[in-house]
Design a protein around this nucleic acid. Structure first.
Lengths: 325, 325
DNA sequence: ATCGGCACTGCAATCGATTGCAAAGAAGTT
DNA sequence: AACTTCTTTGCAATCGATTGCAGTGCCGAT
């Protein structure tokens, strides 16, 4: 049922119907009530496409994760999914719809298509993956674009992210404070976030050597890698995992190897996903403050949409002490 | 850059540009190539809104979770999030965009608005929550609507779901087969899925009594409830949790109480979320086959969009044997 | 020379809502 | 009575693409 139909029924023009439904003051109270009642009765729901086309605004935000390297990581990673959940909450609260695009970048046009499609008022990207250059290029001409990820000097696109270097430092400091000195970093050091975590970890470890156990980030691969490493003997006494999911796989491999956590090996994770509090033993981890982070992302984006200036921001990570370290 | 601009540059009409870009055969090869080249050069990306309005099709599917009772459950529940992930994958593969709507049903119009907005070609709902009647009403007039959830007799809307009654039966049979006879069901028996799981569990338990420990589904509440129950003494020797997340909280409470799993208490979860394989001990659970389930949802929806007939389906659950039971 | 047929291309309507401008009618003023 | 002012409504343009139908020009056939 469209406005024109209602107009015919009410014996007025579509213009009047449009104005009546939007509460435009230049339509008499009488007519307005009459049309409103008729609209309710017949279940009139205006076509949003037409409206958006005319209004040049859509009330929708694109939410996309470029999946450059790790195709699988994002689906299983509760961290990304809860980031998505928080963002969805905030956007819905502000009356925005969400156009979800899981992007497998096949060429460097994907982001152009998204921003030029006219279907969204702004774009939120989760992770830079290996698309840093594309993002930079598009951000130069398209303002309402905010990215969750790392911030490099000279960078043009707006990012919100947590301070991964500091996070790594905190982890190392805590483990050294426990008297551990055979440190192991567990994870794939390629993605920029993880690279920073490792850098901070090494930095704060100072003269203490840091072994790097590099592996794919999916749970099975991590579990296998840790198992294989433990089989070599000469186990580390502390593991800093690049993510909580990796830490949980490590926990299992350690248990299977008959090692006690934290007695024999202390384990520190990263993210503080919901389940981290519910492993056994509960996971000590570096929390990324998603509540603040996602709020900042949305506020920054809305500011950009409104044409106001906005800047990148970094939210500090925080050590969450539980039983595993 | 819109088609009209390009048309002006190329010295042709927008009609010709439109036809050239869409590869319409009645545009000469020469002109077509010339326009294509010009389009590439100037980065022309047609406005999708206008296109969709004219074509009366959008290339987008709405994905919504009505959150009737448990506001918080869905965000933290990895099962729902991974369902969403699978669906997103499948839809993206088929060239659809996804309009994500986290719905907090305030009135019974939310679904009408969604289907009548003109912004999507079809709607996928995850869970019926307490919106069964609304869904029934809208499904009666709107075909491309598929729901993940339970299927009741006389039901008009299409559902894909797993057989929760059978799942409950399998759990009970397995636990009885282990010689356990002090059975406890853990979770909120109100939502239809959980009610079915409990019903099947009771059914297969036969004369063996089933204790029900009813609690909210968020991890802290479950953990507290199990802790309190164990403090009473007279512990059960088998727990069937309504979800894996609940089972993991139970695992932790059991460990804290000094009980061995599965020695003292066997634990069976439900869903088989990714992390279920990585708890300690790894969780025996009833798998909901999301790969099949989500594929069916998407296929069924596409069939409905194409105007073909389609029916509801139930995917059988499966016992995944790990160490916890 | 005329005409039929073919290959292109453009005009203009269309999708469904919004909105500036003008006009009609009512009310008030002198 | 004539004129202004205000309220209320409708006409028609607009957003940007798609597409049926008509028109142009060129070819060979008669």
């Amino acid at each position: 049922m469209k406005l024109a139909d209602l107009a015919a029924m009410a014996g007025v023009s579509t213009a009047t119907v449009s104005r009546a439904l939007s509460g435009h003051p230049s339509v008499s109270k009488t007519t307005q009530e009459r049309i409103r009642a008729l609209a309710r009765e017949h279940g009139v729901r205006p076509n949003q496409l037409a409206r958006n086309l005319r209004m040049r605004s859509t009330g929708a935000i694109a939410l996309a994760m470029p999946l450059g390297h790790a195709r699988t990581q994002h689906l299983t990673d509760p961290f990304f999914l809860s980031l998505l959940g928080f963002l969805a909450d905030l956007l819905v609260d502000r009356g925005y719809d969400i156009l979800l695009s899981r992007v497998l970048p096949e060429n460097d046009e994907w982001l152009d298509r998204l921003v030029d499609s006219g279907r969204v008022d702004g774009v939120l990207l989760v992770g830079q993956s290996d698309q840093y250059d594309t993002i930079e290029r598009v951000a130069a001409r398209y303002a309402p674009l905010v990215v969750w990820g790392v911030n490099r000097p000279e960078q043009k696109h707006l990012t919100i992210g947590s301070d991964n270097i500091l996070g790594g430092r905190i982890a190392a400091t805590h483990l050294l404070g426990l008297g551990r000195n055979r440190l192991l970093f567990l994870g794939d050091p390629a993605p920029p976030e993880f690279a920073d975590r490792l850098a901070g970890f090494r930095d704060a470890a100072g003269t203490t050597a840091v072994e790097v156990l590099s592996c794919e980030m999916d749970p099975d691969a991590v579990h296998a890698a840790v198992g294989a490493r433990l089989a070599q003997g000469d186990a580390p006494d502390a593991i800093f995992a690049a993510s909580d999911v990796a830490a949980m796989s490590a926990l299992r491999a350690l248990t299977e190897a008959g090692l006690d956590v934290p007695g024999d090996v202390a384990v520190v994770g990263y993210d503080d996903v919901t389940l981290a509090a519910h492993t056994s033993p509960p996971l000590t981890t570096i929390r990324q403050d998603l509540v603040t982070g996602t709020r900042l992302m949305v506020e920054t984006l809305l500011r950009r949409i409104a044409g106001e200036p906005a800047t990148s921001a970094i939210v500090p990570p925080e050590l969450i002490l539980r039983a595993s370290a």
